[in-house]
Design a protein around this nucleic acid. Structure first.
Lengths: 255, 255
DNA sequence: CATCACGATTTCATATTGTGGAATGGCTGT
DNA sequence: ACAGCCATTCCACAATATGAAATCGTGATG
Protein backbone atom coordinates (compact mmCIF):
# COMPACT_ATOMS: atom_id res chain seq x y z
CA UNK A 1 0.00 0.00 0.00
CA UNK A 2 2.79 2.32 0.84
CA UNK A 3 6.01 2.27 -1.06
CA UNK A 4 6.28 2.50 -4.79
CA UNK A 5 9.99 2.53 -5.56
CA UNK A 6 10.94 -0.64 -3.78
CA UNK A 7 9.06 -3.77 -2.89
CA UNK A 8 10.99 -4.07 0.35
CA UNK A 9 9.93 -1.75 3.08
CA UNK A 10 9.39 -2.29 6.75
CA UNK A 11 5.91 -1.53 7.92
CA UNK A 12 6.79 -0.02 11.30
CA UNK A 13 9.33 2.29 9.76
CA UNK A 14 6.92 3.50 7.12
CA UNK A 15 4.38 4.13 9.82
CA UNK A 16 6.89 5.87 12.04
CA UNK A 17 7.88 8.07 9.12
CA UNK A 18 4.31 9.03 8.40
CA UNK A 19 3.81 9.85 12.07
CA UNK A 20 6.85 12.12 11.99
CA UNK A 21 5.50 13.77 8.87
CA UNK A 22 2.13 14.24 10.46
CA UNK A 23 3.70 15.90 13.45
CA UNK A 24 5.82 18.08 11.22
CA UNK A 25 2.80 19.29 9.31
CA UNK A 26 1.48 21.03 12.38
CA UNK A 27 2.96 24.17 13.81
CA UNK A 28 2.20 23.10 17.35
CA UNK A 29 2.24 19.91 19.42
CA UNK A 30 -0.35 17.36 18.32
CA UNK A 31 -2.50 14.94 20.26
CA UNK A 32 -2.53 11.21 19.75
CA UNK A 33 -6.07 11.36 18.51
CA UNK A 34 -5.19 13.72 15.71
CA UNK A 35 -2.11 11.77 14.74
CA UNK A 36 -4.12 8.59 14.56
CA UNK A 37 -6.69 10.21 12.32
CA UNK A 38 -4.03 11.92 10.25
CA UNK A 39 -2.10 8.76 9.52
CA UNK A 40 -4.97 6.31 9.52
CA UNK A 41 -3.36 4.28 12.26
CA UNK A 42 -5.21 2.71 15.13
CA UNK A 43 -4.79 4.80 18.29
CA UNK A 44 -3.18 1.87 20.03
CA UNK A 45 -0.69 1.35 17.25
CA UNK A 46 0.14 5.01 16.94
CA UNK A 47 0.62 5.21 20.69
CA UNK A 48 3.05 2.33 20.73
CA UNK A 49 5.11 3.59 17.82
CA UNK A 50 5.21 7.11 19.22
CA UNK A 51 6.34 5.69 22.54
CA UNK A 52 9.28 4.11 20.82
CA UNK A 53 10.06 7.30 18.92
CA UNK A 54 9.99 9.22 22.18
CA UNK A 55 12.31 6.66 23.72
CA UNK A 56 14.71 7.31 20.89
CA UNK A 57 14.25 11.08 21.19
CA UNK A 58 12.95 11.50 17.68
CA UNK A 59 9.80 12.85 19.28
CA UNK A 60 9.16 14.77 22.48
CA UNK A 61 6.05 15.23 24.55
CA UNK A 62 5.02 18.58 25.89
CA UNK A 63 3.74 18.91 29.45
CA UNK A 64 0.20 18.30 28.19
CA UNK A 65 1.28 15.00 26.67
CA UNK A 66 1.02 16.14 23.09
CA UNK A 67 3.67 15.15 20.60
CA UNK A 68 6.24 17.30 18.87
CA UNK A 69 9.45 16.60 17.01
CA UNK A 70 12.57 15.90 19.05
CA UNK A 71 15.98 17.40 18.94
CA UNK A 72 17.61 14.19 17.80
CA UNK A 73 16.30 14.95 14.35
CA UNK A 74 18.17 18.21 14.29
CA UNK A 75 21.32 16.61 15.60
CA UNK A 76 21.23 13.99 12.91
CA UNK A 77 20.05 16.39 10.25
CA UNK A 78 22.97 18.70 10.54
CA UNK A 79 25.47 15.89 10.46
CA UNK A 80 24.52 15.06 6.94
CA UNK A 81 27.55 13.41 5.40
CA UNK A 82 29.58 15.68 3.18
CA UNK A 83 27.24 18.59 3.76
CA UNK A 84 29.05 19.33 6.94
CA UNK A 85 32.11 20.13 4.87
CA UNK A 86 30.09 21.93 2.28
CA UNK A 87 28.58 24.24 4.84
CA UNK A 88 31.85 24.91 6.61
CA UNK A 89 33.59 25.68 3.32
CA UNK A 90 30.79 27.80 1.91
CA UNK A 91 30.01 29.88 4.97
CA UNK A 92 33.00 32.25 4.94
CA UNK A 93 32.53 32.93 1.24
CA UNK A 94 28.82 33.45 1.79
CA UNK A 95 29.50 35.94 4.54
CA UNK A 96 31.96 37.82 2.37
CA UNK A 97 29.38 37.99 -0.40
CA UNK A 98 26.73 39.14 2.06
CA UNK A 99 29.05 41.88 3.29
CA UNK A 100 29.85 43.04 -0.22
CA UNK A 101 26.24 43.15 -1.43
CA UNK A 102 24.50 43.81 1.85
CA UNK A 103 21.82 41.19 1.21
CA UNK A 104 20.91 37.68 2.32
CA UNK A 105 22.93 34.81 0.89
CA UNK A 106 21.59 31.24 0.92
CA UNK A 107 23.00 27.80 0.32
CA UNK A 108 20.57 25.18 -0.98
CA UNK A 109 20.50 21.49 -1.78
CA UNK A 110 18.16 19.71 -4.13
CA UNK A 111 15.95 17.06 -2.60
CA UNK A 112 13.55 15.49 -5.04
CA UNK A 113 11.36 18.25 -6.40
CA UNK A 114 12.34 20.92 -3.91
CA UNK A 115 15.37 22.85 -2.79
CA UNK A 116 16.20 22.84 0.91
CA UNK A 117 17.96 25.78 2.51
CA UNK A 118 20.91 24.45 4.49
CA UNK A 119 22.90 27.54 5.35
CA UNK A 120 22.49 31.27 5.26
CA UNK A 121 24.24 34.56 5.88
CA UNK A 122 22.06 37.56 6.65
CA UNK A 123 23.15 41.19 6.49
CA UNK A 124 22.71 43.86 9.11
CA UNK A 125 20.10 45.84 7.32
CA UNK A 126 16.76 46.60 8.78
CA UNK A 127 14.93 44.99 5.89
CA UNK A 128 16.28 41.84 4.38
CA UNK A 129 14.99 38.56 3.05
CA UNK A 130 14.81 35.99 5.82
CA UNK A 131 14.91 32.29 5.10
CA UNK A 132 15.02 29.71 7.91
CA UNK A 133 17.55 26.95 7.51
CA UNK A 134 15.68 23.79 6.59
CA UNK A 135 12.77 25.44 4.83
CA UNK A 136 11.87 24.32 1.33
CA UNK A 137 10.73 25.68 -2.00
CA UNK A 138 9.72 24.05 -5.29
CA UNK A 139 12.35 23.97 -8.00
CA UNK A 140 10.45 26.02 -10.58
CA UNK A 141 10.04 29.10 -8.36
CA UNK A 142 13.68 29.54 -7.37
CA UNK A 143 16.77 30.65 -9.23
CA UNK A 144 18.93 27.69 -8.27
CA UNK A 145 16.00 25.34 -8.72
CA UNK A 146 15.73 26.36 -12.34
CA UNK A 147 19.46 25.87 -12.81
CA UNK A 148 19.22 22.41 -11.31
CA UNK A 149 16.33 21.54 -13.58
CA UNK A 150 18.21 22.89 -16.57
CA UNK A 151 21.27 20.86 -15.67
CA UNK A 152 19.11 17.74 -15.43
CA UNK A 153 17.88 18.05 -19.02
CA UNK A 154 14.62 18.52 -20.88
CA UNK A 155 13.37 15.09 -20.00
CA UNK A 156 13.70 15.77 -16.32
CA UNK A 157 11.96 19.12 -16.72
CA UNK A 158 9.01 17.46 -18.41
CA UNK A 159 8.82 14.89 -15.64
CA UNK A 160 8.98 17.56 -12.97
CA UNK A 161 6.26 19.59 -14.64
CA UNK A 162 3.97 16.60 -14.88
CA UNK A 163 4.51 15.55 -11.30
CA UNK A 164 4.02 18.95 -9.76
CA UNK A 165 1.80 20.67 -12.31
CA UNK A 166 3.83 23.84 -11.73
CA UNK A 167 1.72 25.49 -9.05
CA UNK A 168 1.77 29.29 -9.06
CA UNK A 169 3.06 31.12 -6.00
CA UNK A 170 2.81 34.63 -7.39
CA UNK A 171 1.64 36.15 -10.64
CA UNK A 172 5.20 35.79 -11.95
CA UNK A 173 5.58 32.08 -11.32
CA UNK A 174 6.36 30.04 -14.41
CA UNK A 175 3.41 27.76 -15.05
CA UNK A 176 4.00 26.32 -18.51
CA UNK A 177 6.47 23.63 -19.57
CA UNK A 178 7.51 25.61 -22.61
CA UNK A 179 8.49 28.64 -20.59
CA UNK A 180 10.17 26.54 -17.94
CA UNK A 181 12.31 24.77 -20.53
CA UNK A 182 13.29 28.06 -22.10
CA UNK A 183 14.22 29.71 -18.84
CA UNK A 184 16.09 26.70 -17.52
CA UNK A 185 18.23 26.12 -20.57
CA UNK A 186 18.88 29.81 -20.95
CA UNK A 187 19.94 30.01 -17.32
CA UNK A 188 22.31 27.09 -17.69
CA UNK A 189 23.78 28.74 -20.82
CA UNK A 190 24.42 31.98 -18.97
CA UNK A 191 25.72 30.24 -15.87
CA UNK A 192 23.30 32.00 -13.54
CA UNK A 193 19.57 32.26 -12.99
CA UNK A 194 17.19 34.94 -11.84
CA UNK A 195 14.04 34.80 -9.80
CA UNK A 196 11.82 37.80 -10.45
CA UNK A 197 9.22 37.60 -7.70
CA UNK A 198 8.38 34.09 -8.80
CA UNK A 199 8.31 32.60 -5.32
CA UNK A 200 7.25 35.62 -3.32
CA UNK A 201 6.13 39.10 -4.23
CA UNK A 202 8.84 41.71 -3.78
CA UNK A 203 11.65 39.15 -3.50
CA UNK A 204 14.22 38.70 -6.26
CA UNK A 205 17.15 36.30 -6.42
CA UNK A 206 20.32 35.64 -8.34
CA UNK A 207 21.54 32.06 -8.19
CA UNK A 208 24.42 29.91 -9.38
CA UNK A 209 25.35 26.25 -9.12
CA UNK A 210 28.24 24.84 -7.12
CA UNK A 211 30.23 21.84 -8.33
CA UNK A 212 32.23 19.26 -6.44
CA UNK A 213 35.44 17.52 -7.41
CA UNK A 214 33.67 15.01 -9.63
CA UNK A 215 32.02 17.75 -11.67
CA UNK A 216 28.58 17.04 -10.27
CA UNK A 217 26.25 19.70 -8.99
CA UNK A 218 26.92 19.93 -5.26
CA UNK A 219 24.55 22.69 -4.23
CA UNK A 220 23.15 26.07 -5.15
CA UNK A 221 24.16 29.53 -4.00
CA UNK A 222 21.87 32.51 -4.20
CA UNK A 223 21.42 36.09 -3.12
CA UNK A 224 17.93 37.22 -2.14
CA UNK A 225 16.90 40.84 -1.94
CA UNK A 226 13.86 43.05 -2.13
CA UNK A 227 13.32 43.28 -5.87
CA UNK A 228 13.83 47.03 -6.03
CA UNK A 229 17.28 46.76 -4.49
CA UNK A 230 18.54 43.94 -6.66
CA UNK A 231 21.23 44.90 -9.17
CA UNK A 232 22.35 42.95 -12.19
CA UNK A 233 25.88 44.06 -11.39
CA UNK A 234 25.81 41.50 -8.58
CA UNK A 235 25.86 38.65 -11.07
CA UNK A 236 29.61 38.75 -11.40
CA UNK A 237 30.10 38.70 -7.64
CA UNK A 238 27.75 35.78 -7.19
CA UNK A 239 29.44 33.83 -9.97
CA UNK A 240 32.84 34.56 -8.50
CA UNK A 241 31.74 33.42 -5.06
CA UNK A 242 30.30 30.25 -6.56
CA UNK A 243 33.53 29.50 -8.37
CA UNK A 244 35.50 30.10 -5.22
CA UNK A 245 33.42 27.58 -3.28
CA UNK A 246 33.46 25.07 -6.11
CA UNK A 247 37.22 25.34 -6.30
CA UNK A 248 37.50 24.58 -2.60
CA UNK A 249 35.35 21.52 -3.14
CA UNK A 250 37.92 20.27 -5.62
CA UNK A 251 36.24 21.44 -8.79
CA UNK A 252 38.58 22.29 -11.64
CA UNK A 253 36.74 24.42 -14.19
CA UNK A 254 37.32 23.76 -17.88
CA UNK A 255 34.49 23.94 -20.44
CA UNK B 1 21.14 -2.36 25.81
CA UNK B 2 17.52 -1.78 25.06
CA UNK B 3 15.52 0.85 26.73
CA UNK B 4 15.73 2.25 30.21
CA UNK B 5 12.95 4.77 30.59
CA UNK B 6 10.08 2.74 29.26
CA UNK B 7 9.44 -0.98 29.00
CA UNK B 8 7.73 -0.50 25.68
CA UNK B 9 9.99 -0.04 22.72
CA UNK B 10 9.76 -1.33 19.22
CA UNK B 11 12.72 -3.38 18.17
CA UNK B 12 12.92 -2.23 14.57
CA UNK B 13 12.81 1.39 15.57
CA UNK B 14 15.54 0.97 18.13
CA UNK B 15 17.64 -0.75 15.53
CA UNK B 16 16.91 1.87 12.93
CA UNK B 17 17.91 4.55 15.42
CA UNK B 18 21.18 2.86 16.20
CA UNK B 19 21.89 2.52 12.48
CA UNK B 20 21.29 6.24 12.02
CA UNK B 21 23.60 6.93 14.91
CA UNK B 22 26.25 4.68 13.51
CA UNK B 23 26.08 6.50 10.18
CA UNK B 24 26.22 9.85 11.94
CA UNK B 25 29.37 8.89 13.79
CA UNK B 26 31.30 8.73 10.56
CA UNK B 27 32.26 11.76 8.56
CA UNK B 28 31.90 9.91 5.29
CA UNK B 29 29.54 7.36 3.75
CA UNK B 30 29.70 3.94 5.39
CA UNK B 31 29.42 0.44 3.96
CA UNK B 32 26.86 -2.11 5.06
CA UNK B 33 29.59 -4.29 6.47
CA UNK B 34 30.80 -1.58 8.81
CA UNK B 35 27.30 -0.65 9.90
CA UNK B 36 26.54 -4.25 10.68
CA UNK B 37 29.66 -4.54 12.79
CA UNK B 38 29.07 -1.19 14.43
CA UNK B 39 25.53 -1.96 15.50
CA UNK B 40 25.89 -5.68 16.08
CA UNK B 41 23.14 -6.37 13.58
CA UNK B 42 23.18 -9.22 11.11
CA UNK B 43 24.14 -7.95 7.67
CA UNK B 44 20.86 -9.13 6.27
CA UNK B 45 18.86 -7.36 8.93
CA UNK B 46 20.83 -4.15 8.63
CA UNK B 47 20.39 -4.26 4.89
CA UNK B 48 16.65 -4.60 5.12
CA UNK B 49 16.23 -1.84 7.68
CA UNK B 50 18.53 0.47 5.75
CA UNK B 51 16.52 -0.26 2.64
CA UNK B 52 13.43 0.95 4.40
CA UNK B 53 15.20 4.02 5.73
CA UNK B 54 16.39 4.82 2.23
CA UNK B 55 12.83 4.40 0.96
CA UNK B 56 11.75 6.96 3.50
CA UNK B 57 14.70 9.22 2.65
CA UNK B 58 16.14 9.15 6.13
CA UNK B 59 19.23 7.68 4.53
CA UNK B 60 20.81 8.09 1.11
CA UNK B 61 23.23 5.93 -0.80
CA UNK B 62 26.21 7.35 -2.57
CA UNK B 63 27.12 6.15 -6.07
CA UNK B 64 29.30 3.44 -4.54
CA UNK B 65 26.33 2.13 -2.58
CA UNK B 66 27.56 3.29 0.80
CA UNK B 67 25.14 4.83 3.23
CA UNK B 68 24.90 8.39 4.46
CA UNK B 69 22.23 10.42 6.20
CA UNK B 70 19.39 11.78 4.11
CA UNK B 71 17.98 15.24 3.76
CA UNK B 72 14.66 14.28 5.27
CA UNK B 73 16.35 14.42 8.64
CA UNK B 74 17.28 18.03 8.12
CA UNK B 75 13.83 18.88 6.87
CA UNK B 76 12.24 17.38 9.93
CA UNK B 77 14.92 18.65 12.26
CA UNK B 78 14.38 22.26 11.48
CA UNK B 79 10.63 21.99 11.83
CA UNK B 80 10.96 21.19 15.49
CA UNK B 81 7.65 22.06 17.10
CA UNK B 82 7.61 25.40 18.82
CA UNK B 83 11.22 25.96 17.93
CA UNK B 84 10.09 27.21 14.60
CA UNK B 85 8.41 30.06 16.43
CA UNK B 86 11.28 30.43 18.80
CA UNK B 87 13.74 30.79 15.97
CA UNK B 88 11.54 33.16 14.00
CA UNK B 89 10.96 35.32 17.07
CA UNK B 90 14.54 35.29 18.24
CA UNK B 91 16.27 35.88 14.93
CA UNK B 92 15.53 39.60 14.49
CA UNK B 93 16.57 40.31 18.07
CA UNK B 94 19.69 38.23 17.60
CA UNK B 95 20.61 40.14 14.48
CA UNK B 96 20.11 43.44 16.24
CA UNK B 97 22.37 42.27 19.04
CA UNK B 98 24.94 41.07 16.57
CA UNK B 99 24.87 44.45 14.83
CA UNK B 100 25.25 46.31 18.09
CA UNK B 101 28.14 44.24 19.42
CA UNK B 102 29.67 43.13 16.15
CA UNK B 103 30.04 39.55 17.32
CA UNK B 104 28.41 36.17 16.76
CA UNK B 105 25.11 35.54 18.54
CA UNK B 106 23.83 32.01 19.10
CA UNK B 107 20.56 30.42 20.17
CA UNK B 108 20.81 27.06 21.94
CA UNK B 109 18.55 24.38 23.30
CA UNK B 110 19.35 21.86 25.98
CA UNK B 111 19.18 18.24 24.97
CA UNK B 112 20.18 15.84 27.70
CA UNK B 113 23.73 16.67 28.69
CA UNK B 114 24.53 18.96 25.79
CA UNK B 115 23.40 22.21 24.28
CA UNK B 116 22.49 22.21 20.60
CA UNK B 117 22.95 25.34 18.50
CA UNK B 118 19.71 25.95 16.64
CA UNK B 119 20.13 29.44 15.24
CA UNK B 120 22.87 31.98 14.79
CA UNK B 121 23.61 35.48 13.60
CA UNK B 122 27.16 36.18 12.48
CA UNK B 123 28.69 39.64 12.03
CA UNK B 124 30.54 40.96 9.05
CA UNK B 125 33.93 41.00 10.66
CA UNK B 126 36.86 39.23 9.22
CA UNK B 127 37.41 37.24 12.38
CA UNK B 128 34.47 35.96 14.32
CA UNK B 129 33.42 32.87 16.19
CA UNK B 130 31.73 30.43 13.86
CA UNK B 131 29.30 27.83 15.11
CA UNK B 132 27.36 25.56 12.74
CA UNK B 133 23.67 25.22 13.40
CA UNK B 134 23.10 21.77 14.86
CA UNK B 135 26.50 21.37 16.46
CA UNK B 136 26.70 20.46 20.13
CA UNK B 137 28.69 21.19 23.24
CA UNK B 138 28.64 19.77 26.78
CA UNK B 139 26.78 21.81 29.38
CA UNK B 140 29.73 22.47 31.65
CA UNK B 141 31.88 24.19 29.04
CA UNK B 142 29.32 26.74 27.85
CA UNK B 143 27.81 29.84 29.42
CA UNK B 144 24.20 28.90 28.81
CA UNK B 145 24.94 25.30 29.74
CA UNK B 146 26.06 26.40 33.16
CA UNK B 147 22.95 28.49 33.56
CA UNK B 148 20.79 25.55 32.61
CA UNK B 149 22.58 23.35 35.10
CA UNK B 150 22.24 25.97 37.77
CA UNK B 151 18.54 26.32 37.09
CA UNK B 152 18.16 22.55 37.39
CA UNK B 153 19.53 22.48 40.92
CA UNK B 154 22.45 20.96 42.80
CA UNK B 155 21.10 17.46 42.51
CA UNK B 156 21.05 17.68 38.74
CA UNK B 157 24.56 19.11 38.71
CA UNK B 158 25.86 16.18 40.72
CA UNK B 159 24.14 13.75 38.38
CA UNK B 160 25.56 15.49 35.35
CA UNK B 161 29.05 15.48 36.78
CA UNK B 162 28.88 11.78 37.55
CA UNK B 163 27.53 10.84 34.16
CA UNK B 164 29.99 12.87 32.14
CA UNK B 165 32.97 13.07 34.46
CA UNK B 166 33.43 16.69 33.37
CA UNK B 167 35.93 16.19 30.56
CA UNK B 168 38.32 19.07 29.99
CA UNK B 169 38.32 20.86 26.65
CA UNK B 170 40.86 23.51 27.50
CA UNK B 171 42.98 24.33 30.51
CA UNK B 172 40.14 26.56 31.75
CA UNK B 173 37.41 23.93 31.66
CA UNK B 174 35.72 23.35 35.01
CA UNK B 175 36.54 19.81 36.07
CA UNK B 176 35.39 19.58 39.67
CA UNK B 177 31.88 19.32 41.03
CA UNK B 178 32.57 21.91 43.71
CA UNK B 179 33.63 24.53 41.22
CA UNK B 180 30.82 23.67 38.86
CA UNK B 181 28.24 24.11 41.62
CA UNK B 182 29.72 27.42 42.65
CA UNK B 183 29.83 28.80 39.14
CA UNK B 184 26.39 27.59 38.24
CA UNK B 185 24.60 28.97 41.24
CA UNK B 186 26.51 32.20 41.03
CA UNK B 187 25.58 32.53 37.37
CA UNK B 188 21.93 31.94 38.10
CA UNK B 189 22.08 34.56 40.87
CA UNK B 190 23.54 37.15 38.52
CA UNK B 191 21.22 36.26 35.68
CA UNK B 192 24.02 35.70 33.20
CA UNK B 193 27.00 33.40 32.78
CA UNK B 194 30.45 33.70 31.31
CA UNK B 195 32.61 31.26 29.45
CA UNK B 196 36.28 32.14 29.73
CA UNK B 197 37.95 29.94 27.15
CA UNK B 198 36.39 26.91 28.78
CA UNK B 199 35.22 25.27 25.57
CA UNK B 200 37.83 26.55 23.18
CA UNK B 201 40.98 28.54 23.59
CA UNK B 202 40.60 32.21 22.67
CA UNK B 203 36.79 32.08 22.66
CA UNK B 204 34.74 33.80 25.35
CA UNK B 205 30.98 33.94 25.78
CA UNK B 206 28.28 35.77 27.64
CA UNK B 207 25.03 33.85 27.97
CA UNK B 208 21.53 34.28 29.37
CA UNK B 209 18.44 32.10 29.61
CA UNK B 210 15.19 32.66 27.73
CA UNK B 211 11.83 31.87 29.32
CA UNK B 212 8.51 30.98 27.76
CA UNK B 213 5.01 31.89 28.83
CA UNK B 214 4.90 29.17 31.47
CA UNK B 215 8.05 30.44 33.13
CA UNK B 216 10.12 27.48 32.00
CA UNK B 217 13.52 27.77 30.43
CA UNK B 218 12.89 27.87 26.71
CA UNK B 219 16.40 28.25 25.35
CA UNK B 220 19.71 30.00 25.81
CA UNK B 221 21.10 33.07 24.11
CA UNK B 222 24.78 33.84 23.95
CA UNK B 223 27.37 36.08 22.37
CA UNK B 224 30.68 34.52 21.37
CA UNK B 225 33.78 36.53 20.67
CA UNK B 226 37.54 36.23 20.64
CA UNK B 227 38.36 36.58 24.32
CA UNK B 228 40.38 39.74 23.91
CA UNK B 229 37.50 41.56 22.28
CA UNK B 230 34.87 40.58 24.81
CA UNK B 231 33.60 43.39 27.03
CA UNK B 232 31.70 43.08 30.27
CA UNK B 233 29.68 46.09 29.16
CA UNK B 234 27.89 43.73 26.78
CA UNK B 235 26.19 41.99 29.66
CA UNK B 236 23.42 44.56 29.81
CA UNK B 237 22.77 44.30 26.08
CA UNK B 238 22.63 40.52 26.19
CA UNK B 239 20.28 40.56 29.15
CA UNK B 240 18.06 43.11 27.45
CA UNK B 241 17.94 41.04 24.26
CA UNK B 242 17.08 37.97 26.29
CA UNK B 243 14.26 39.76 28.05
CA UNK B 244 12.95 41.04 24.78
CA UNK B 245 12.76 37.53 23.33
CA UNK B 246 11.30 36.08 26.51
CA UNK B 247 8.63 38.75 26.50
CA UNK B 248 7.68 37.83 22.95
CA UNK B 249 7.39 34.23 24.03
CA UNK B 250 4.78 35.32 26.55
CA UNK B 251 7.02 35.54 29.58
CA UNK B 252 5.98 38.08 32.18
CA UNK B 253 8.92 38.90 34.43
CA UNK B 254 8.34 39.42 38.12
CA UNK B 255 10.79 38.64 40.93
C1' DC C 1 41.17 -14.97 -19.32
C1' DA C 2 39.84 -17.82 -15.48
C1' DT C 3 39.53 -18.04 -10.74
C1' DC C 4 39.09 -16.42 -6.26
C1' DA C 5 37.45 -13.64 -2.49
C1' DC C 6 34.54 -10.64 -0.39
C1' DG C 7 30.64 -7.93 0.22
C1' DA C 8 25.91 -6.89 -1.15
C1' DT C 9 21.51 -8.80 -2.01
C1' DT C 10 17.78 -12.09 -2.07
C1' DT C 11 15.35 -16.08 -0.41
C1' DC C 12 12.61 -18.46 2.75
C1' DA C 13 11.06 -21.29 6.77
C1' DT C 14 10.29 -19.81 11.33
C1' DA C 15 8.71 -17.76 15.72
C1' DT C 16 9.25 -13.45 17.30
C1' DT C 17 7.27 -9.31 16.96
C1' DG C 18 4.01 -5.92 16.26
C1' DT C 19 -1.07 -5.59 15.78
C1' DG C 20 -5.65 -3.74 17.02
C1' DG C 21 -10.02 -4.73 19.44
C1' DA C 22 -11.51 -4.23 23.84
C1' DA C 23 -10.96 -2.95 28.63
C1' DT C 24 -9.12 0.28 31.84
C1' DG C 25 -7.47 4.61 33.59
C1' DG C 26 -7.41 9.71 34.02
C1' DC C 27 -8.99 14.15 33.36
C1' DT C 28 -12.27 18.04 32.43
C1' DG C 29 -16.37 20.25 32.28
C1' DT C 30 -21.20 20.28 33.78
C1' DA D 1 -21.32 12.88 41.03
C1' DC D 2 -21.59 11.95 36.34
C1' DA D 3 -20.68 11.88 31.48
C1' DG D 4 -17.70 12.20 27.80
C1' DC D 5 -13.44 12.09 25.80
C1' DC D 6 -8.72 10.64 25.32
C1' DA D 7 -4.77 8.28 26.59
C1' DT D 8 -3.01 4.04 28.06
C1' DT D 9 -2.68 -0.89 28.90
C1' DC D 10 -3.87 -5.77 27.98
C1' DC D 11 -3.74 -9.76 25.37
C1' DA D 12 -4.82 -13.51 21.90
C1' DC D 13 -3.50 -13.77 17.30
C1' DA D 14 -1.16 -13.90 12.92
C1' DA D 15 1.23 -10.91 10.28
C1' DT D 16 5.72 -9.38 10.40
C1' DA D 17 10.51 -9.03 10.85
C1' DT D 18 14.25 -12.22 11.47
C1' DG D 19 18.77 -14.36 10.17
C1' DA D 20 21.07 -18.51 8.19
C1' DA D 21 22.15 -19.82 3.89
C1' DA D 22 22.22 -19.36 -1.01
C1' DT D 23 23.04 -16.22 -4.90
C1' DC D 24 24.68 -12.40 -7.27
C1' DG D 25 28.29 -8.75 -8.56
C1' DT D 26 32.54 -6.98 -8.72
C1' DG D 27 37.19 -6.27 -8.36
C1' DA D 28 41.61 -8.41 -7.53
C1' DT D 29 44.99 -12.03 -8.62
C1' DG D 30 47.47 -15.50 -10.90
Amino acid sequence: MKDSKNGTSIQVIDRAASLLDAIARYQEPVSLKVLGAETGLHASTAHRILGSLVGNRFVERDPAGRYRLGLRLLQLGVRLHSNIDLRAVALPVMEALRDKLGESVNLTLREGDVVVYIEKATPNRMMHVQQLVGSRAPLHVTAVGKLMLGAAGDEAIRGYAQRTNLPAYTRNTITTIARLKDECSEAVQRGYALDNEEAEIDVGCIGVLLYDGTGNVAAGLSVSAPIERRRMAWVDDVIAAGQQISAQLGHRPQT
